[in-house]
């Protein structure tokens, strides 16, 4: 299988009055065509910034981005427009990501008008109707405004917009976290059906472990801009090696009356991502931290085949 998206040493720093905020630091990953990479981490860990940097919504600070084998790190205006027709994004909040002054059909037609992909208005309305059918939006909503629809239908508009240019790669930035649970399942199933039908590649950003398990092939765990663990989805849920992943998964609620597992609560302050000192960023909250953790940056190492972890003490903690 061919690699569609590859990112090498990607960094995104933001200038703040107090110094450089390391939102994304040294991220490397590859996504195969037709697969889904789940990016998981707590709020503020840089996962959304990573997604936006990959599709050039933020300009990267350094590093390289490859798309379909081509280096797309630096693009001029024309190339950027061309790149954006291959790469789309589904936003977290379907309430604020749709222009309130446009109707459903206008919203879906917008990308087609920008790229002038349809020749006549008859063709355009046919295409919009087809997209609405694809995402399961009844045609009677074509002339409605987003605020008249519920969250699930709005998110379907977002998906229809993302699909309208036949992209290969879609960054999904917490597409279901603003929806209630029954609608979450509908939208996730729709996204999976579309992936199977159209061969889409997803980068799925979320903080919800159950969602990510459901949809991803590979999972990447982020903590304060760093990648702390990367492995196959099944593997991560079976063998969580990094102490942060352990804590994260221990926090997933399980609907069981008998409490069968020990609760693991994290204590300690979160390290500031502004001008961070060298050393593991998780060290201040890590129950296993030792002296080197506070001094040396851990590097991502392949601990088991296909399973990468950035932790100095991974062997000791997991008795490998």
């Amino acid at each position: 299988m061919a690699t569609l998206v590859e990112v090498k040493d990607l960094k995104k720093y933001f200038k703040t009055p107090r110094g450089l905020l390391h939102a994304v630091d040294n991220i490397n990953f590859k996504i195969e065509k037709g697969q889904t990479l789940g990016v998981v981490g707590e709020s503020g860990c840089g996962k959304s910034t990573l997604g936006r940097t990959v599709i050039h919504l933020h300009e990267r600070t350094s590093g390289q981005i490859f798309f379909d084998g081509k280096d797309v790190s630096d693009l001029n205006k024309q190339q950027l427009k061309e790149f954006r027709s291959h790469v789309q994004m589904i936003f977290q909040d379907p309430f604020s990501s749709l222009n309130p002054r446009m109707s459903v059909s206008q919203l879906i037609a917008e990308p087609l008008l920008i790229y002038k992909t349809t020749k006549s208005s008859a063709e355009l309305s046919k295409e919009v109707a087809r997209l609405m059918d694809t995402v399961g939006l009844a045609r009677r909503f074509a002339n409605s405004y987003p605020h008249e629809l519920d969250g699930g239908r709005r998110q379907r508009i977002g998906i229809a917009r993302a699909l309208s240019l036949n992209p290969e790669f879609i960054v999904c930035d917490e597409p279901v976290s603003a929806l209630d649970v029954s609608i979450q399942a509908q939208i996730l199933n729709l996204m999976q059906d579309l992936q199977d039908e159209l061969g889409l590649t997803y980068m799925f950003i979320t903080h919800n472990m159950s969602v990510v398990k459901h949809i991803s092939n590979n999972i990447m765990i982020m903590y304060l801009g760093n990648m702390v663990e990367f492995a196959d989805a099944q593997e991560i849920f079976k063998n969580r090696l990094h102490p942060y992943t352990k804590a994260l998964l221990a926090a997933v609620p399980i609907p069981a009356i008998i409490e069968g597992r020990k609760r693991q609560l994290l204590t300690g302050e979160i390290t500031s991502p502004i001008n961070p000192k060298p050393g593991c960023r998780f060290a201040s909250r890590c129950p296993y931290a030792t002296a080197p953790c506070h001094e040396v940056d851990p590097t991502l190492a392949e601990v088991m085949p296909g399973h990468f972890v950035a932790c100095h003490n991974v062997k000791e903690i997991n008795q490998l």
Partner: peptide, 27 residues
């Protein structure tokens, strides 16, 4: 979800092939 999408597809096929682009009688 699967049920839902099939019903909306049926509903859609009942109406004509194209739709009008625009708001519902905005002016």
């Amino acid at each position: 979800m699967f049920m839902l999408s099939t019903t909306t597809k049926q509903e859609a096929s009942l109406t004509q092939d194209t739709i009008s682009i625009g708001g519902h009688g905005q002016a």
